[in-house]
Simulated assay, not measured.
Amino acid sequence: MGTAQKAVRGFALDIGSSRTRVWAPGAGVLADVPSGPVRRGRVTDATPHQRLLRRVADTAFGGALDETVVMLCHPVLAGPAEREETRRMVAGLGAARVVSVNSARAAAAYAGPSGGGPLLVVDLGAALTEVTLLVDGVMQDARLAEIGLDDLAEPGASPGVVVHTAAELVRELWREDTTGAVRGALGRGVLVTGGGALRLDLTGRLALRLGARLRLANDPATSTVRGAGLLLSSALRHPGGGPRRP
């Protein structure tokens, strides 16, 4: 008789400036809690996040992560050093494999199929505003500003600040685009995600500023981690998508 193989498990992880979310196939959202020390999308202290993930592992996986694959979301313009630091933090828990995906691709995966071609993803987050141009699911260009919903809590702050920022980031992409992809993406409709997608005072103004139809992500606050979960499920089904030691 052959030796029985262990079932490969996994979860998706999105460490946002405001919330940290964990999603697992067959279980859905396992955690949706305030983030530990995070500054404008950058983890400044790994310890609280490791404790959270350890609690999730204990509850969902019996504490063992040696046969677990983690799909880790990161801001679209996170640098190699930043991505590697966060990856090491997660790998330090004993995960067999850590795979990274940018937040725009993850959000687009959750939005569902809309055919190939160009897609603009606008992420109105708590501490960051990100605009990404995807073509056939691959990131072609992106812009980021360290302005988000949390800044609207400042005295005298207006929603127009976030709207203006997002519109200017789109215009920057358009000015640098030599292929017509941005124009095509605007014609197809702009995917808006993040907590700001729930605010009509932002999305209504943004649609007017861009002169484009907006597609609001379903459950936009968790669309990134859910999309990463879908990509994880696909990776686990693919030959060779199981665990490998990082």
Rank of each mutant, 00 (worst) to 15 (best):
D219V: 03
R88V: 08
R143L: 05
H238F: 12
T165R: 02
G41Q: 02
A7Q: 05
R244M: 07
V98M: 01
T165E: 11
V98D: 01
L198R: 07
T129M: 03
D123F: 00
T86M: 02
A104P: 03
G115Q: 13
V190I: 08
A106D: 06
R143Q: 07
G125M: 07
G180D: 04
H238K: 12
H74G: 02
G187A: 10
A212P: 06
L169N: 01
R188I: 06
D150E: 10
Q140N: 13
A96V: 10
V122E: 10
A166Y: 00
H74D: 05
D151P: 06
G115L: 14
E172P: 05
G211Y: 01
A127M: 03
R88K: 15
L119D: 02
R183D: 14
A228D: 12
A157D: 15
N218L: 11
A157H: 07
A145Q: 04
A78T: 02
M139A: 03
P34G: 03
G195S: 13
G227K: 00
L93S: 01
L202K: 01
V90W: 00
G94R: 11
A78L: 01
R209D: 14
L13G: 00
G187W: 09
A228G: 14
E130H: 08
G10I: 04
E168K: 03
D66Q: 13
V161Y: 09
H164R: 15
R21Q: 02
R105C: 15
L149T: 01
N102D: 12
M89W: 00
A108N: 13
P243S: 15
G36M: 06
A106I: 04
S17M: 06
D136K: 14
V135N: 09
G189T: 10
A197Q: 10
D66T: 12
Y110H: 12
A81V: 10
A104L: 07
